[in-house]
Amino acid sequence: MSRTVTLVLVDPTGRPLGALPPYDVPEPWWQQVGAIVDEARHRYGVDVAVLRLLAADRPEPPGGSLTYLAEVAAAPAVPLAPVTVDLAPHPLRAAWAEPGGPAASVAWATAELARHGRPVTAVAQHRTWNLSAIWRLDGPDGSAWLKQVPAFFRHEAAVLRRLATVVPDLVPALLAADDTGRILLDHVPGEDRYAADPAERAAITAAHHTVQRRAVADTERLVAAGVPDLRGPALSRWIRDRLAPHDTAVAADLLAGLDDRLDRVRDCGLPDTLVHGDLHPGNVRGDGRRATIIDWGDAFVGHPAFDILRLTETLDAPTAGPLLDAWAARWRADVPGSDPHRAVELLRPVAPLRLAAVYAMFLAGIEPSERPYHLGDVPACLKRAAALA
């Protein structure tokens, strides 16, 4: 599966210049823009910074015919097609999705690396969408990654700062951060471990237990630093508030009994701690010698079972069972008398319910043209939660 891409070009002031002829790129995922940038340079000799999605011919990713807005320093020599697009400001538009936004962020990162004695010789844009913009910055002293996120993910820097003091080998090194959601991370060797087998997932589970065990004593400091507090009743309030604008009829019984269910979870005796929030293997990067847990923007303080549920949710029962048993054994050893297995079963339907609320939060925080990224996720997660209840 591929994408057909049309780039509507604007200059650094935001003045529309026209559209490049459509072209295909092999990556089907809408937020991946590396191939878009490379093909624009290869086909038309144009250096672009992709700003945001304008339109799609299908209701959700991946693939299809897509129109993006992209910035160029000056009008290119290639003929451009006239287009009519709505470029009006929007209050929910990300800073990196505006003309001049990418250049400002790259300039900040370049200056921060210079302060580390690391000159930058090449910059490549990798991703842009409503949840993040990502660039790779290369130089003679190695590579670094610039990531910029919206307000609801800005606690990632606080999480990385704290974890660097207790488990530095398990998280990316934070080189710099500012109050606009920009973070600068040192390069982590290896590959994202989407294809991790059960043995590798077992190693991830063991490593992450170290993170959670050491974070138990840090919950108040993490909350004070801005990490969302979703402990006990706060979780049910948070879920209901975010799902209020959506049709939740399919999960009405689960929502009605949520407070009682969370009370029973608390009786299982496990402590609240730092939760990654999206602990699938693709958020682990490794090279065969070490594994690093990345993308902590979804993190919150709450029940540790949410992460093992996320790590095992796509596995069949015979494969997931040993991972859950090992996870439970570690917590029973740490907290004698606790009942981790029961906590997992009670939270099993709550996990997709929480994800529905997460996606609802995304939809409430992004401009309309980017809603197709997440529009189908809320009802899908609600349906799954109801089926598991």
Results as ranks from 00 to 15, higher is better:
T219P: 04
A176S: 07
G45C: 06
A49V: 15
R354Y: 05
S369M: 14
G376N: 08
M361W: 02
A360Y: 05
D47E: 11
A95I: 07
A329I: 15
V78P: 03
T219W: 06
I294Q: 01
W108T: 06
L274Y: 10
R3T: 09
A75V: 14
D178P: 01
L353F: 00
P368T: 00
A217L: 08
R289A: 12
A173E: 09
A55P: 04
D178M: 03
A249D: 11
L184E: 03
E345Y: 03
P304M: 08
Y23H: 11
T292L: 14
L66M: 05
L17W: 08
R332I: 05
A249E: 07
A364S: 07
G277K: 09
P198M: 13
R43K: 00
V250R: 11
G181Y: 08
V5H: 00
T165W: 04
A328D: 07
H303K: 15
L324Y: 11
L92V: 00
D253I: 15
G226P: 01
A107Q: 14
R354P: 02
A357V: 02
P271R: 05
L69T: 09
R93T: 15
G282D: 00
H374K: 00
V344A: 05
G63I: 11
R154M: 09
W96S: 01
L170C: 06
D186P: 04
D272P: 00
R193W: 02
V211H: 02
P198K: 12
R332T: 05
E200A: 11
N283I: 15
V33P: 10
G297K: 03
T219E: 12
V378I: 10
V335W: 01
W331V: 04
G321I: 05
T4M: 14
T121W: 03
E112S: 15
L382H: 04
A380Q: 14
R261N: 04
C381Y: 09
H42A: 10
A19Y: 13
R242I: 02
E60M: 03
T210V: 15
G365W: 09
T292G: 10
D38R: 13
V216P: 02
P189L: 12
L262S: 03
R15L: 15
L87V: 11
H246V: 12
D138C: 11
R330W: 13
E200T: 09
R240G: 00
P119K: 13
P245W: 00
P82D: 09
D260P: 02
P61N: 13
T312H: 05
R182F: 01
R221F: 09
P349K: 06
L347R: 06
E156G: 11
P91D: 10
H90Y: 05
H303R: 11
L184V: 07
T13S: 12
A49C: 13
D47F: 15
V33A: 14
D138P: 07
R193Q: 08
A357Q: 02
S143P: 12
D334M: 08
E370Y: 03
V85D: 12
A385W: 04
T314N: 10
W145R: 13
Q32C: 05
G376D: 05
P336D: 04
R118I: 14
V171E: 01
A305M: 11
I293L: 08
A380S: 14
A305P: 08
A40D: 08
P168Q: 00
P16L: 06
L170P: 03
A95R: 06
H209T: 07
R193G: 04
L323I: 10
